[in-house]
């Protein structure tokens, strides 16, 4: 208990009244505003405990969960876009391209969906890379019309879980010993001759027959390709995996058979439409 409260002569402050071994302490309490703030935080914490799910088994009066909050916000966003997405859901793809406002909305949505889902393989700008098609140019494996692009996105390429997936299989001419190394070399030279870049004309001449027997069924007599089988054109300036001889030899010997997932089950129909319109708008659409 305080015994004797004195006033300090230097500062004019009162002492606490306690004395410990001759030591007295000035009574300088915390500022009032500080104490008030402390009490407010304590009350705040109490209110917070009651309103929010703070303890195991206690859901809080507001029944708040971050997941519910997120889904509500997402629903709100979807509701806000409903006027547009409802139109997109029913409009045929050609009609979307004909309506400038709808097109703008589809491209904006498609750009976002592309960055989320497609960019890892096709690149953020859609330029692809070796084995991943460039979506900006005018070469298409399975077709560059709106419908063809939409079908490829929806069902994927060589995606076993989808019955309608784009499928074809180029034989492994080397691995399965369908052709000898020399024959493969000659075929590669012949393929290069389509674009005028063969280095060994004699080999290319020998390759003509090998190509006609083994390759022309899908790639065409003159290497024009066939979109039914996703067989690339071989007589243009664009190479899917690379246009140097070593790469072509490797492709013939081991085959490629690249895979793209079917997005039908992962993305909703409206998003797939937006993606198709977006990819079609990148410059190579047919």
């Amino acid at each position: 208990m305080p015994t004797k409260v004195e006033t300090d002569s230097v500062t004019g402050t009162e002492t606490t009244g306690h004395e410990w071994d001759g030591i007295k302490e000035l009574n300088s309490p915390l500022p009032r505003w500080w104490i008030i703030v402390l009490w407010i935080t304590i009350i705040w914490a109490g209110v917070y405990y009651v309103l929010y799910p703070t303890l195991p088994g206690w859901d809080g009066l507001w029944q708040y969960t971050a997941r519910k909050d997120l889904s509500e916000r997402l629903d709100a966003v979807r509701a806000g876009r409903a006027a547009w997405t409802d139109k997109l859901a029913v409009a045929p793809l050609e009609e979307i391209e004909a309506d400038p406002d709808l097109l703008e909305f589809a491209i904006a949505g498609g750009r976002a969906a592309f960055a989320d889902n497609c960019a890892p393989c096709h690149g953020t700008g859609g330029a692809g890379g070796p084995g991943y098609p460039n979506l900006l140019d005018d070469a298409w494996l399975w077709g560059g019309t709106l419908d063809a692009i939409s079908a490829t996105i929806e069902h994927g390429v060589r995606w076993p879980q989808d019955d309608d997936t784009r499928i074809s299989a180029m034989p492994r001419f080397g691995v399965d010993e369908l052709l000898t190394s020399a024959q493969i070399n000659d075929a590669a030279e012949y393929v290069l001759s389509f674009s005028g870049s063969a280095t060994d004309q004699a080999a290319a001449g020998r390759g003509r027959e090998i190509f006609a027997e083994n390759c022309a069924a899908c790639h065409g007599e003159s290497g024009g390709g066939n979109r039914e089988f996703g067989a690339p054109r071989l007589n243009d300036a664009i190479w899917f995996y690379g246009g140097d001889k070593a790469t072509i030899v490797q492709t013939i010997a081991k085959s490629r058979n690249g895979v793209m997932p079917a997005w039908g089950g992962r993305l909703d129909a409206v998003t797939i439409k937006q993606l198709a319109v977006y990819v079609h708008s990148l410059g190579g659409g047919e």
């Binding site: 690149g123 140019d137 005018d138 664009i238």
Partner: peptide
């Protein structure tokens, strides 16, 4: 000018910029 990609090679060998 588009920077991603800088240019696109087309099948007939021409170059396109966006």
């Amino acid at each position: 000018r588009d920077r991603n990609p800088l240019f696109v090679s087309l099948s007939d060998g021409t170059i396109r910029n966006g």
